[in-house]
């Protein structure tokens, strides 16, 4: 953005030199306002400013840049007979519009960005910002609200809001606990306090058969889940 603005500012000076100034001292009309290469840079820069300022949802800057772009697009291509250099010529009205557009873009963008605050996230923290990506499909088994809370927990971590992140994680955990209850086909009410839920899960675990290795493995996983939840509850 800064580079683009800097370049626009320098072109602004060029136009003044080759355009207005040339006309004022009565240089022949064969001369052009700016060379072709600079013209395309100008068009590209204005288009970039429009895209960028629209992406940033600025209100005034894109309109100012569009005025300039429209004026610039009305330029007439010409080439210098002696040197063969190609360029474009602006009519006096469009040159005025273009010049004020270039001057106003700088002012508009400064004014509009002054009311903004921008944040930058370091690459190491980015996975937390896109927290669901860290969970892949494992969350599909649990209620949608838990996905939402985990997503927000990650965003809170990315922005350094530890307490808010833990708050979201606890809410996600509550939804996940409801999911466990549903998963085990338990009749327990997931709105119960955690202690009661834990008793229900404990009873369910105890009731599971263990007559073959598969059954034993499942029972062990339920037992581990019970233990994990107990630790979370204590925390």
């Amino acid at each position: 953005l800064a580079a683009s603005l800097g370049w626009i500012a320098s072109v602004h000076e060029d136009i003044k030199l080759f355009g207005i100034f040339a006309k004022e001292i009565g240089v022949s009309d064969d001369r052009f306002s700016i060379i072709e290469e600079e013209y395309y840079k100008l068009i590209g820069s204005l288009e970039y400013m429009i895209t960028l300022s629209e992406t940033l949802r600025l209100n005034v800057t894109p309109e100012v840049a569009k005025d300039g772009l429209n004026a610039a697009k009305r330029a007439i291509f010409a080439s210098d007979r002696e040197s063969g250099i190609r360029g474009v010529r602006f009519n006096i009205l469009d040159l005025g519009i273009l010049r004020s557009s270039l001057r106003d873009i700088v002012m508009a963008i400064e004014k509009e960005l002054r009311g903004r605050r921008s944040y930058s996230l370091e690459p190491a923290i980015l996975p937390y910002y896109d927290a669901l990506g860290m969970f892949s499909e494992t969350l599909d088994k649990f209620p949608a609200s838990s996905r939402e809370d985990i997503e927000h927990a990650g965003k809170c971590i990315a922005f350094g809001e530890g307490t808010a992140a833990v708050f979201h994680l606890m809410r996600a955990m509550e939804a996940i606990v409801s999911g466990i209850v549903a998963l085990g086909g338990l009749s327990a009410n997931p709105d119960k306090e955690w202690g009661k839920l834990l008793s229900d899960i404990g009873r369910h675990t105890e009731s599971l058969p263990q007559s073959n290795p598969q059954e034993k493995a499942l029972r062990n996983r339920w037992s581990a889940c019970h233990k994990n939840l107990y630790h979370v509850k204590q925390a």
Binding site: F142, G154, E161, G162, T163, A165, V166, G179, V232
Partner: peptide, 24 residues
């Protein structure tokens, strides 16, 4: 009050827990 580092630990534990649960 939790620091970001503590919140990260809770987050990572939750993730490990969920991954384990998904196998139930």
């Amino acid at each position: 009050t939790y620091t970001t580092e503590e919140a990260k630990q809770v987050f990572d534990s939750t993730r490990a827990f969920v991954r384990e649960l998904a196998t139930l």
